[in-house]
Design a protein around this nucleic acid. Structure first.
Lengths: 219, 219, 219, 219
DNA sequence: GATGAATGAGAGTTCATTCAT
DNA sequence: TATGAATGAACTCTCATTCAT
C-alpha cells in the first residue's frame, strides 16, 4: 500500500522499501504500545498506524512479543544515545563548573521528560514481569551506562581540581537522582508537561546541592 | 497464600460469607493485578484467589475498573500510612541528627523496596493512561504527603539548629530523591531483592550528601 | 418494603398485603415484559418495579416462566373482558344499525389500540415458540370469544331484519378484520399513537363496507 | 438444512470461503432468530448453522444487532418482492374479475401463511422496542407498498368498469384486511399449518364481501 | 512479499436461581 | 415471610495468529 515510501538510489538494487517498512512497523508499534500498554495494544492498530496489513507485521516480526521487544530496544537505544550525547558535553574546557552542570542537568532533564522517554520507562515498568530481560537491555545499556559516562566526567573534573568527589560513581548516581527524582511526582508520571522554567529550576537546585556536597571546597 | 481471609473465632458458626469478603476480594485483586497487570489479570483468577465465585466479585465491586481502582487506593493508602509512620519518628529528641536520618532513610528505603510498593508503582506507571485520576490519589495523597511531612521535620530540625535548610520542601524532596533515585536500577524495577546491607549503604550515602548540603555548618 | 399498601379492614385478620403484593408483582411483570420482552426482562427489574426484593418474586411465582404465564393470563383476561363489554352494547334496541356499529367499532378499535393491548399481542407473537399454550388461552378465550359474541349479535340483528348475514360467524370475523386489519401498519405495531379521529374514520369505513355486504338490502 | 450454502461448480477448487459466506450467514441468522427470538438466539448457533466460525460472523456483520437488521431486511425484501409479483398478476385481461381476485387473494394468503412470513412478522412484533426503525423498513417498503400496488390495480379495474371503488387505497386496505385478518387466530400466529382448502375458503369469502361492497353494480 | 478472510481461545459481564438469616 | 448475598451457566465480543491467494 505504501510502496513509494522509500527513496532508493536509482540504478542500485537495494530493497530499501523492505527496511523502511520494518522501521515504520517498529515506530508504529512503540507508539501504540505506549498508548495502550502491551496487552491492550492490538496488532491491527499497529498495522494500521504503520500503513500495512496485519500479516505483514507478522512477516517482519514473528509475533507480538518479538514486536514489543524490538520496538522497546530501538526506543531504549535511541534514548541512551541522546543521553550519552548530552553527558559528552561535560568536558572541563569551561572553567565554570556550575554553569556546565546546570546546562547538562537541564538537558538531561529535557530528555528525561520527553514523551517517548516517559513512555519507555512506563512500559518497562509495566511489563517487567512478562519481559524481565528487557530490564537488562534498558538498564545495563541504558541507565547504568549513563551513570558510568557521567562518573567518568566527574572523575575528570575531580582530577582537574574542580570537584572533590572521592567516589565518582556514587556521585554520578546521586547527581542523576537529584535531577530525576523530583520529576516523578512533578510530571505526574509523564502525564503533565513540565514547563522549561521548572526543569531549569530543578536542575539548578540539584546542582546546588551537588556542589555543596561535592564542590571543590569539600574533601 | 491468603492466610488472613477470615479470622472468625473458632467454634463459632461462620456465615456463608459476608463480613470480610470484600476485603479478601480487594487483597486478591491487588495480588493478581500486581502479577499480570490490569489487562491480563482476569477476574476469574481474582475470584479464585479470594475464594469466592466470579459474580460475587461483581456484586461487591461493580466493574473490573472499579475493582482496580479500589484495590489501588487501598494499597496506596496503606503504603502512605506506613511511610508517614516512619517519617513521624524523625523528632529532634535525639541529638544525633545523622543517626536519626540514617535510620529514617533506611526504613523509608525498606518500605520503598517492599514488593507491594514496587507493584503499586508498577501498576501506577502501567495504567496511567487508562486511569489518569489514580495519579492524583497516589501522588497527591501519597508521595507529596510524605514530602510535606518530611519537610515539616526538616523545618523543625532547622529551627532547633540541627540543620541549615532554608527551603524545607526542596530539602525534603532532594532527601527522598537521594534515597530512592538510586534504587530504580539497583533493584531492577523491583525484580531483584536488594539486601539490607545495600539499603543501609544507600541510605548512609544519601544522608552524607544531604548533610554536606544541609548540615548545620552550612547556611 | 411497601407494607402500607393495603387497606385491610380493621379488626379483621385477612392477609390482604399478601394478595396486594402478588398483584403488584404481576402488574410490574407485565409492564417489564412489555418493555423488554421475555428474555431481556430481568427479574430484578420486575422486583424493583413492584417494590419488593427479588426472592419475594420467587416466593410468589415460582420462576420466570410461571411469572410470565400468570402476567399474560391476567392481561389477556382483562383485555377480553373489556372487549366483551363493548360487544354487549350492540343490542337492537336502537333502530339505527349503522350508528350502533360505528360506535361499537370505534370502541373496539380503542381497546385494540390501547398500549397494553398492543403489548399483549406483541408478547404473544414474540414468545409463541416458547409458550405455545398461551395462544390457546389468549385466542380461545380471547379473540374467538369476541368473534362468537359478535356473531351472536349479528345473528340477532339478522333475525330482527336489520342485517342480511347468512353466516354470522364469518360476518363477525370479517367485521373485526375490517376494523383491526388496517391498524397494523397505521399504528406501526403500536409504536405510533393513533389519533381518535383516525380511529373513527377506520371504523366508519369498516362499517360502510360491512353494511354494503351485509346490509338489509342484500340477501 | 442449508442446502443452498454453496453452489460452486463441481470439480472446481472451492476457496476456503469467501463468496457466499455472507449470504449463508444471513440465511442462518434469520432461521435462528426465527427459532429463538433476538435475545435468546446465540451467535454461536448462527455460526454453526451457517457452517462458519463465530468470529467470521463478526467479521462480516459487525454486531448481533447489525446481523439482525440485515437478516430482517433481506427477509422483508424477499417477502415484499413475492407479494408484489402476486399483485402484478391482477391485470384486467381476464374479464372474470371474481376469478382473478380469488386467485390473487389465495396466492397472497399463501405468501402470508408461509413459515418465513410468520417468522418475519413475529420478529418484527417482538423486537419493535429494540429496533423501532425496522418497522419503517418492513412497513413502508413492505405492507404499504403492497397496499399501493394493489390500489393501482383496483383503480385500473375501476376505470375499466369492473369495479366501483371510489377510493382505491381504502378498498385495497380493506381487501387485504379481509384476507389476512381472519388468519391471525386461524393459524394460531403461525403455529398451526393452515390447509390450502381453508386458504381458498377465506380468500373466496373475502372476495365475496369485497365484491358486494365494491362490485360493478355499486356506485 | 503482501493481503483478505477465517478461526480457536478466552475474557468481561449478566442473570435466574438458591442459601441462610 | 422477606431479604441480602452468593453462585453456575451462558453469551457477546475481541484478538493473536494462520491459510491461501
Amino acid at each position: 500500500m505504501n510502496t513509494a515510501t522509500s527513496s532508493a538510489a536509482p540504478g542500485q538494487h537495494v530493497p530499501r522499501g523492505r527496511i523502511d517498512k520494518r522501521q515504520a512497523i517498529l515506530d508504529a508499534a512503540f507508539t501504540v504500545f505506549a498508548r495502550h500498554g502491551f496487552a491492550l495494544a492490538c496488532v491491527q492498530e499497529i498495522a494500521t498506524e504503520a500503513g500495512v496489513a496485519k500479516p505483514t507485521v507478522y512477516n517482519h516480526l514473528h509475533d507480538k512479543e518479538t514486536l514489543f521487544r524490538h520496538a522497546m530496544e530501538a526506543a531504549a537505544n535511541r534514548a541512551m544515545a541522546e543521553n550519552l550525547a548530552v553527558v559528552d558535553q561535560l568536558t572541563d574546557h569551561g572553567a565554570d563548573v556550575r554553569a556546565a552542570l546546570d546546562e547538562v542537568g537541564y538537558q538531561l532533564l529535557q530528555r528525561h521528560c520527553d514523551d517517548r522517554s516517559w513512555a519507555l520507562r512506563r512500559l518497562l515498568n509495566a511489563e517487567v514481569n512478562r519481559f524481565p530481560d528487557l530490564i537488562d537491555i534498558a538498564h545495563a545499556t541504558g541507565a547504568n551506562r549513563i551513570t558510568q559516562a557521567l562518573a567518568d566526567r566527574v572523575a575528570r573534573l575531580t582530577l582537574a581540581g574542580h570537584l572533590a568527589a572521592t567516589e565518582p560513581v556514587e556521585a554520578a548516581e546521586q547527581f542523576l537522582a537529584l535531577l530525576t527524582g523530583p520529576m516523578e511526582s512533578r510530571a505526574r508520571l509523564g502525564t503533565r508537561p513540565v514547563p522549561d522554567r521548572e526543569l531549569r529550576a530543578v536542575a539548578r537546585a540539584a546542582v546546588r546541592t551537588f556542589l555543596r556536597a561535592y564542590g571543590e571546597g569539600r574533601a
